[in-house]
Amino acid sequence: MIFWRQMNFEGRAGLILLAILVLMALLAPLLAPGDPLAITGEPMLRPFTSGTHMLGTDRLGRDVLAGLLHGTRTTLLVAFSSAAVALIAGSIVGTLAGFLGGIADTVLMRITEAFQTVPGFLLALASISVTGPSVATLIFAISLGNWTQAARVTRAEVLSLRERDFVAAARTLGMRPLEIAFREILPNAFGPTASLAAISVAAAILIEAALSFLGFGDPNRVTWGSMIAEGRAVLRAAPYLSIVPGLALVITVLGIHLIGRGLSRTERLQP
């Protein structure tokens, strides 16, 4: 891996955590075959008391470990896709605003600000209640509140890049404005935007969990948020039902943040 050598200790720790999570997600069907929503044993088994149910079972007798493993898939899928959608959309808007300037800039940035004034979670909630819950609508709903930061950062970077000589050189060659914006400027503006990726992914994980907790997640998939919500009803009798997926959530967000910190350090080393 190219990153590994340039990363500091924090970044490497984060990468290891993320690698474990990705492995969990990939191997979920092998480690816990079958439907994780199926009832497989006695209800309310405590963790480490049964050989077949390592982390116990929930109120209905569904295996917690299976839920956890399969939940990793949903969580990572939704979080990374929505962060990618947010970054791509944000950097396109930011590039257009910064490069075109004038009225286009004003209009695009006022729209960005309008989105920024509404909390991202509220936007996601509103969007989901209109479109109904599924993985695709979740991704869209979460990126709705997440793209503005990328747009602002990209715009700032583009504003300084567009005055550079290589942009003037592209113009003297007769390159069309859209090609200059997206081929010459955007790739050079992407560094600082990419370092937002970690924050974006972490925010997306938390929003996804919160939506699932409120029952707005995809009902056909296990997610950590829905597991926590499920455990809430029996929080006194079986706190592990909420604690186990909660810990998974904490570790994931921690890992992503560590990678983010590692990345922002290395970004400065690059030319």
Binding site: D165, F166, A168
Partner: peptide, 15 residues
């Protein structure tokens, strides 16, 4: 009509 810039490093897309 073409141009050659003063700072040859700044005149190229670094990528």
């Amino acid at each position: 009509f073409q141009m050659v810039f003063q700072d040859p490093l700044a005149a190229f897309n670094p990528r």
